[in-house]
């Protein structure tokens, strides 16, 4: 069984969890994800791996509380076991020596971009990392990202920390200055990934995005996570989660992210009520 060995609350809504999962920690590669279930009645929650340690046998995930499942997850503590914990899922990032690359993380996407950034640097790339969030408290893993990258830029929407503005503005400047950027990775809210593609496109540079589509099994069985890429239907769970962002049908992808919004609201309302009664 997979057991929680460490939990940290990084912000009102952001948590980091370290989970003992021997087999997964042995196999997982940057860019892959896990799916966990809190209890028998829970959802299958996909989370991208933020870090892992093969010798110590753990994986780290970072999440933001947005609905019932993540609120429940935030209630778990050291020693608790998951009802179900599977992985590693999805295709790993294509890590090789490109030359100069840029990695971008927005919000909890910073955690997802972290192992990719590190791996890209380890194989000899110059990695320019750009991370951003709404406000200072939401900037996570700054130290880890500094270490994982060659050069780190930080932005906050409200200017409460480092540079005021969006990651895309920094990206544009870097692209204008650096002539040899071979590839960009961007992980974060759909709107941020889409905007990143728009900025990189005129420079003729590919942007790899990691899509957080709605999934059930995560192994290619249900088709819930399908997305149109280059005119073809792909399954995010087995064909992705990383795709060439320039080919992603963003409108459809973002529409499909809202499929359960109403039901999720209902569910979290009921969950909050239940918590208050306790």
């Amino acid at each position: 069984m997979s057991k929680i060995i460490r939990v940290e609350k990084w912000h009102d809504v952001i948590y980091s969890m370290w989970i003992k999962a021997l087999q997964i920690s042995m196999k997982v590669q940057p860019g892959q994800f896990v799916i966990l279930m809190i209890d028998e009645k829970g959802e299958r929650i996909p989370l991208t791996v933020a870090d892992y340690h093969r010798e110590e046998g753990w994986v780290q995930v970072v999440f933001q509380t947005v609905g019932t499942s993540t609120m429940k997850l935030a209630q778990m503590s050291i020693g608790d076991e998951f009802f179900s914990f599977i992985g590693p899922l999805g295709k790993p990032s294509e890590i090789k020596k490109y030359g100069t690359v840029i990695t971008i993380g927005g919000g909890t996407g910073i955690a997802c971009i972290h192992p990719i950034t590190r791996a890209l640097k380890e194989v000899g790339n110059k990695v320019i990392a750009i991370i951003g969030a709404r406000t200072k408290e939401l900037i996570i893993m700054e130290e880890e990202m500094k270490e994982a990258s060659t050069e780190l830029h930080i932005t906050t929407d409200d200017g409460s920390y480092m540079r005021k503005g969006f990651v895309t503005e920094v990206l544009k400047e870097v692209l204008q200055g650096e002539k040899n950027v071979r590839k960009v990775w961007a992980i974060g809210p759909a709107i941020m990934m889409k905007a990143t593609c728009a900025v990189a496109k005129p420079f003729g540079i590919d942007v790899i995005v990691s899509l957080n589509a709605i999934m059930v099994d995560g192994t290619g069985m249900c088709g819930s996570c399908r997305v149109t890429v280059g005119g073809q239907t792909k399954y995010t769970c087995v064909d992705g989660p990383e795709f060439n962002g320039h080919l992603v049908e963003w409108r459809e992808f973002m529409n499909r992210l809202t499929r359960y919004t109403e039901l999720e609201k209902l569910s979290s309302k009921m969950y909050k009520k239940k918590c208050q009664r306790k």
Partner: peptide
């Protein structure tokens, strides 16, 4: 799968919608 495996027919008692 939602209905049978995840018991979404019993939503919101079960979390999967």
């Amino acid at each position: 799968t939602r209905s049978n495996l995840m018991k979404a027919y019993a939503f919101p008692k079960y979390d999967t919608p």
